[in-house]
């Protein structure tokens, strides 16, 4: 079974033109309510891949938004105007989620039926204990004004975050085929990001790190 097959209509019911997005015919401007099966990728007429070309995403959103902008339906019946407003909101939401690498990964996990953030709240392995130690070390380095140590910690934490995001990126596309345990681990990886972000925030809060330009990276 594949979840990546899209089941949205491919042709405009009115003018028979090919539909790039299931919610609007770019030819005759006919609007369609979003099909239940359509996800954010479908909505924007994009392939369901984790790696996204941001310019392609922006271009797709722009092309669709222009066609469905509620102002263009000012002379249409209220249902049409309502539909245009609703679709515009959905397209905006789709863009917000798909543009952000973390939100996009979380969304793909959701599509694959993986656990929510409320269901799996832990992180991979002993990461929490490690985070605790790192926090204490940053505290120490900051109070002893050791800019070099702070900078070293910053770059190593940043590398750890990048590593976690790489693992996420490499697994995101095959999530549907993975076991429940793999999906849980994917959620744990997503959970770990916020801890790295906070560590980086703590490092950046150090006046020394800022003075040496360490938080520019």
């Amino acid at each position: 079974m594949s979840c990546t097959e899209s089941t949205v209509p491919v042709k405009c019911l009115k003018c028979q033109a090919e539909l790039a997005s299931p919610i609007v015919c770019t030819g005759c401007r006919t609007l369609y309510p979003p099909p239940q099966s359509a996800d954010y990728f479908d909505l924007l007429g994009l392939q369901r891949n984790y790696v996204i070309d941001e310019s392609q995403l922006t271009a797709a959103v722009r092309a669709i938004s222009r066609k469905i902008h509620p102002d263009r339906f000012a002379d249409q019946p209220p249902e049409m105007r309502k539909l245009a407003t609703r679709l515009s909101a959905e397209v905006n939401q789709a863009m917000t989620v798909l543009k952000d690498p973390v939100q996009r990964a979380a969304y793909m996990l959701e599509l694959a039926g993986g656990p929510s953030a409320a269901e799996v709240r832990d992180v991979p392995g002993d990461l929490l204990a490690e985070v605790m130690v790192l926090r204490e070390q940053i505290d120490e380095a900051q109070s002893s004004q050791d800019a070099q140590v702070v900078e070293q910690m910053r770059s190593s934490i940043q590398a750890r975050r990048a590593q976690a995001l790489e693992q996420i990126a490499s697994r995101a596309d095959q999530l549907a085929a993975h076991s429940d345990e793999d999906k849980k681990e994917f959620r744990r990886l997503l959970n770990s990001l916020k801890y790295f972000d906070n560590l980086l925030e703590q490092v950046a809060a150090d006046p020394l790190a800022r003075a040496s330009g360490a938080d520019n990276g």
């Binding site: 992180v123 929490l128 959970n191 801890y195």
Partner: peptide, 13 residues
Amino acid sequence: GIVGAPECGDVMK
């Protein structure tokens, strides 16, 4: 006991 809240990144020992 070391616990954390993934939504805010807080850690508590």
